[in-house]
Write a protein that binds this DNA or RNA. Sequence first.
DNA 1: CTCCCGATAT
DNA 2: ATATCAGGAG
Length: 215
Amino acid sequence: MKRPTKAIKATLKSRFLDRYSDAVSELHYRSLYELIVAVMLSAQCTDKRVNIITPALFNAFPSVEDLAQASLEKVTSLINTCSFFNNKAKNLILMAQSVMENYGGQIPLDEKSLMKLAGVGQKTAHVVLIEYTKANVMAVDTHVFRVAHRLGLSQAKTPAKTEQDLVNAFKTELHTLHQAFVLFGRYICTAKNPKCESECFVREFCQTTQTFKPT
DNA sequence: CTCCCGATAT
DNA sequence: ATATCAGGAG
């Protein structure tokens, strides 16, 4: 597997930025509170499904205060069509309670604090920062991980290492590149049956073309 | 490394 | 009917 040269990394970067200059998250939210809840729910679950669930959830619990006082049963019943709903319901309430008790009701906007919240790991924390503050950080979800590996940008086994590889490769405009990689991975460089021939605009840089080339 | 766990694509 | 999708905690 060839590592991309500096020149190729630059080309990849501009291709993705050109293609996805106006890329935004597909999660529906109207506040930082709604954002963090939506991102927490999106763990191992599609954004599409999260968007089906959240309107009723936000209606029942319009603010962190409301969620902090919510009953587990009520939250569970509102999110039980998304994966790991028992864990998520528990974590959502714990997260809200922690925000009330430790951060005066203000959801913190730094990585360390975010990651102390129940159910918030590095990926969730980074996505919140990217979305809400356009922080120059990378978040590696399953799409970003797959795309980075197919393009030879990382050989790392863990998302954290892959994140570092991507930061080193691109350095700036990471928040836009994150969105770009997610959308590219979701619709073009899909896990199964990627649209290599028909839609991939970085085909010539793919390290795994053989695997996916139609026979 | 294992558990958590519904939805959707095939 | 079964495989595959999609992160965090212990």
